[in-house]
Simulated scan of single mutants.
Amino acid sequence: MVTESGVASSPDHLSFSQLVFSDYERYRPGARASWPAVIVRLPSLPGLLASLILRSQQCLYRAGRRRLADQLRTLANVLIGADLGAGMTVGPGFMMAHPVGTTIGFGLVIGRDVTFAGGVTCAARYYDERGADNQEFATIGDGAVIGANAVLVGGVTIGRRAMVGANSVVLSDVPDGAVVMGSPARRVGSRDVTEAAS
């Protein structure tokens, strides 16, 4: 089921293994996902290692083990140089091609089959000393691609199969299938959205 914003319904019904395997299949299309296959590929696919940590955080957080989920943030920083805060909702098939420098966290909603290049930052519009619960973060639709070092500011919505170019700063919503670039990001083209319609 896809919501009005183009984001698949909550992945809360998927197990840890299902989420990790769905990510693995993005790195190895057509390969059969299994734990031995994932473990063998971890040393050569830092994005898959990032996915393993992110999915651990996601499942721990939804099980109410928030402190442990938060502690895995340091592990991600040390092992892959990514800042993965707990409390995000990430659909199946998430791919971080180059996770180093990626900063994402609490409140972020990501649909299915979304791709991040390196250094992506999803930030609140302003710092709120009352904590992350009082800040708005982005919602990213199914099949979207976020380019290297792109910054998504505040509660923006990135539509289905939209593409955000490298080094872009997104301050407003991006429609389905739009290609945006620049700072602030402006529409420069379009992508076919029919593949994400199912």
Rank of each mutant, 00 (worst) to 15 (best):
T157H: 11
L14G: 02
F16G: 11
L75V: 14
R55Y: 06
L152R: 00
G141D: 10
P92W: 12
I110S: 01
N167E: 00
V114T: 11
V156L: 01
D176W: 05
E129L: 10
R41S: 15
V151M: 12
G143A: 14
V180D: 01
E136H: 06
T3M: 09
D133W: 00
I39K: 08
E25W: 07
D23L: 12
W35N: 08
G177T: 06
S51A: 13
Y24C: 13
R32K: 15
G131A: 04
A178T: 01
D128V: 03
P43G: 12
L72E: 05
L171I: 15
L152H: 00
D133K: 02
N149K: 05
A124W: 09
V145R: 04
D176K: 12
R186T: 05
V78G: 07
I53Q: 06
V179K: 02
M95L: 13
T3K: 14
Q58A: 12
A124D: 10
A138F: 00
D173R: 10
G159P: 04
F106T: 07
L79H: 09
E4R: 15
R26I: 10
D83Y: 07
S190L: 03
Q71T: 08
V38R: 10
R62C: 13
A33P: 10
H13C: 04
R62Y: 10
R26W: 11
S51D: 06
L14K: 02
M163G: 05
A8N: 09
G64W: 01
L75W: 10
V156G: 01
L152V: 02
S5H: 11
G91Y: 10
M95I: 06
V169Y: 00
V180R: 00
V7W: 07
L152K: 00
A82K: 08
S15V: 04
V109E: 11
D176I: 07
Y27Q: 11
Y127P: 01
S10I: 07
D128R: 01
F106H: 13
A124Y: 08
G85M: 01
R125F: 05
V164G: 00
A82D: 07
G93S: 14
S51N: 10
A138C: 14
S183H: 04
A124C: 11
A63R: 15
A138H: 05
Y61Q: 08
L54H: 11
G118F: 08
G107E: 13
V7I: 15
Q18Y: 05
S44V: 15
A166C: 02
D176Y: 09
P36K: 12
V109L: 10
A178F: 03
A8L: 08
V179D: 00
L68Y: 05
R125Q: 10
M95F: 07
C122Q: 03
L152P: 01
E25M: 14
V20W: 08
M1G: 15
T102H: 02
L171G: 06
A166F: 01
Y127D: 03
G105R: 03
G155A: 14
A166N: 03
V145A: 10
L75F: 08
N77Q: 15
G6L: 12
G111W: 09
Y24E: 13
R62G: 10
N149A: 03
L60W: 04
Y61A: 08
S183I: 06
S44R: 14
E25N: 08
L152F: 00
G189K: 03
L68W: 11
D133R: 05
R65C: 08
G105N: 08
